[in-house]
Simulated scan of single mutants.
Amino acid sequence: MNTVDLHTLTGAYALGALSEQEAAEFGRHLAQCDACTREVRELQETAARLALAVAEVPPADLRTRVMAALPEVRQLPPIPREATVLPMRRRTRRRLPYLAAAACLVVAAVAGGLAVKARQDADAQRERSVRAEQQAAVVSALMAAPDATFHTTALKGGGSGTVVASKRMGRAAFLYRGLPALPEQRVYELWYSRDGSMVPAGLVEPGRSSGTMLLTGGPQGADGVGVTAEPPGGSRTPTSPPLGLLRV
Rank of each mutant, 00 (worst) to 15 (best):
N2T: 15
L9E: 02
L9R: 12
Y13H: 09
L18D: 07
L18Q: 01
L18A: 05
E22T: 08
F26W: 05
L30V: 05
L30A: 04
L30C: 04
A31W: 01
Q32L: 10
C33K: 07
D34W: 10
A35W: 10
L43E: 10
Q44R: 15
E45I: 07
T46L: 14
A55F: 10
A60M: 13
A60H: 14
R65K: 02
V66N: 02
M67F: 13
M67L: 15
M67I: 13
R74F: 08
L76T: 06
R81L: 04
M88L: 15
R89G: 14
R91E: 10
T92D: 12
R94D: 15
L96H: 12
A101F: 10
A101I: 05
A102Q: 05
A103D: 08
L105W: 11
A109G: 09
R131C: 00
E133R: 13
Q135L: 09
A136C: 02
A137M: 14
V138K: 11
A144T: 10
A145D: 02
D147H: 09
F150P: 01
T153S: 10
A154G: 13
K156P: 02
K156N: 09
G158H: 04
G161E: 04
A172I: 06
G178T: 01
G178H: 08
L182C: 02
E184S: 12
E184R: 06
E184V: 03
V187T: 12
W191C: 03
Y192P: 10
G196K: 01
G207I: 03
T212C: 06
T212D: 05
M213E: 07
M213R: 09
T216R: 15
Q220H: 09
D223A: 06
V225P: 04
G226P: 02
T228E: 00
A229R: 00
E230K: 00
G234T: 05
P238V: 11
P242N: 06
P242E: 07
L243W: 00
L245I: 11
